[in-house]
Design a protein around this nucleic acid. Structure first.
Lengths: 188, 188, 188, 188
DNA sequence: AATGAATGAGAGTTCATTCAT
DNA sequence: GATGAATGAACTCTCATTCAT
């Protein structure tokens, strides 16, 4: 792991544990076991660091989610593949989920537009576009469809992290996938 | 409006506009058009202020959502009433939505347990309990059911606030309600 | 007791208990059971209040110490009378001792000259002047003589207040007087 | 001089000049010619700084006073050595005297017990214990004996600092020592 | 490249004082 | 006379950032 990655990793851990509000460059440096000054060799500012971390996580997430996606495959296959991938990613890396959510919700925290808040949604919209062509979905607004897929996932993750439910169980994950599927298609 | 409410109102506005991260007592006082010291006449600390605001919003939300709920009514009526109420509240007071989301997502921002993050979920769980007795819901884990109801709503609101969609439109709201209904019951 | 005295009394109590450093007008008002504003009806400022309290205590002390002093009486009588009076005063009103000491030691706390720090010494110097005429004292610098009388008394009081010794015991008080007497005169 | 010592030195100077009451971290930093933040690199808090300074001064004082003290020497030698040392220390470092006095007199200024107020008395009590074995002292309570030694010294120093007397004069210092000696032993 | 002491603006909070009631 | 809500300057302390080493 490069020193840059070590720092990003430490940032992720601290943000998850204590939140943006309590993240300080000193604590970050300690966690990453480097000097404060070292951080600034790799990142122009705290803000840039956070943004870079966000983009990295989104890229990882997107890559993971798209794994196995094939345009020519039936929509149903792609749907379960991608939703399954997303669940896997979040359950495996709850810190990433936690970070993304905090980032998305903090207005102007470390970003100038709200656009990038929705980068994480890209795969969802890609999937929907794919489905539309096949006329697989119930007739509804595209954002609503996205909300029906991504919303329950985030809610489950929040409860999982809070210890309200154990979302690492395969059965529960499958249940979510199935319910989402029925929800947007109306079919079993 | 009492001075205390003026301050809470200003806090809500600022948190929505700039996020927790940038909320300072000085800016808050300016926004509320009082002196810094005045804030401390009504709240022991910034922390207490934020917590109080959160509890107030949750109380308002809960009250609003429960309006029209009647145990003896058919579950379907209560479902559409409550979900409609929730949508109305959030669309009418997007600041409240934004605040609640930030608060819930911030680990240990100003709270020691994660319990209170889920106060906002109370009405949802109340509704589900109500439904269980009538055997109206698809067979699924209770938290999943809650996620299928509350998740899409929050996702829609996020997109609404980001300007991705206009969720103030009655048609779209009804669509969400209908889709959620189908999603958790499997019936039209 | 007039309201003014009530306030002074509260100030004395608080300064003794928590020290100048922690004395606030709000706490003072609470202790005196008046409104903060009321304090300012009787004293122009915190500073003036403290100064007035100091002068009052010094006046009380001086009056008490001089009680029974008579120029025509033998020096020895006056010596034991006055030193006894001083001991009585301090033991009876340890708060006053504590206040005076703090006041005297705080450079420019609430005063512009150091002169008034020594008002409390007046009776001592008066006594010494009285003695000089009678040629009763050992040959020594007048300030040293004052120090030999007043110094041990303050030291005993400090230890008394700290609980190191019980200076309320008559035997110990008499011992101090006797030792001081021998110390400045060289006679039993 | 290390930066830490520079800061302690500045604190001592300011406390002497303006008193605890007016000591602010900003003024302290200015006096020490460092940034405010720098102070906090060396001391956790104002409180800790003050306490550390106190302990340092007491240690210096004690070391200085004990210099030349030898158990096997006659008590008289030790008495004059130690008292002379104490006088020297205070006359040479009146700021230290001033600081110690203020610290000792401030109830709960920055300390939780009154115990440490008396650290400065340690050498005095050590000396007395030494004397007791040799049966040199008049028969009196041990605290009274301590008061007869340390009390006049502090009183002289107070008057010296206030400009009432010039205690830097060797003759006056010797006079004090001699008077104290006679006072506690009854012998010349 | 790497360090961490140093910086100083800005944070949350307190408090002597005022003034409309 | 009496009140106490309101003020804002000043307090202690933090922290993103810099720079000499």
């Amino acid at each position: 792991m490069t020193k840059k990655d070590t720092i990003l990793h430490a940032a992720l851990k601290l943000v998850t544990k204590e939140g943006f509000y309590h993240l300080s460059m000193k604590k970050l440096a300690e966690e990453a076991q480097v000097a404060v000054g070292t951080t600034y060799l790799y990142f122009d500012s705290k803000e840039k660091l956070i943004n870079e971390l966000y983009l990295k996580i989104v890229a990882d997430f997107t890559e993971m989610v798209m794994k196995g996606f094939q345009k020519q495959k039936p929509f149903k296959d792609n749907f379960f593949t991608m939703l399954g991938n997303a669940i896997d990613f979040y359950v495996k890396f709850p810190d990433c989920f936690s970070f993304i959510e905090q980032y998305a919700l903090s207005p102007f925290l470390f970003k100038e537009t709200q656009e990038e808040n929705f980068l994480i949604w890209e795969p969802v919209f890609a999937l929907i576009k794919n489905a539309k062509k096949e006329n697989e979905l119930k007739n509804m607004h595209v954002t609503l469809c996205a909300a029906l897929i991504y919303g329950p996932l985030t809610s489950m993750m929040r409860m999982h992290i809070a210890g309200k439910v154990d979302f690492s169980k395969k059965a529960l994950q499958d249940e979510l996938s199935q319910m989402c599927w029925e929800s947007v298609t109306g079919r079993k």
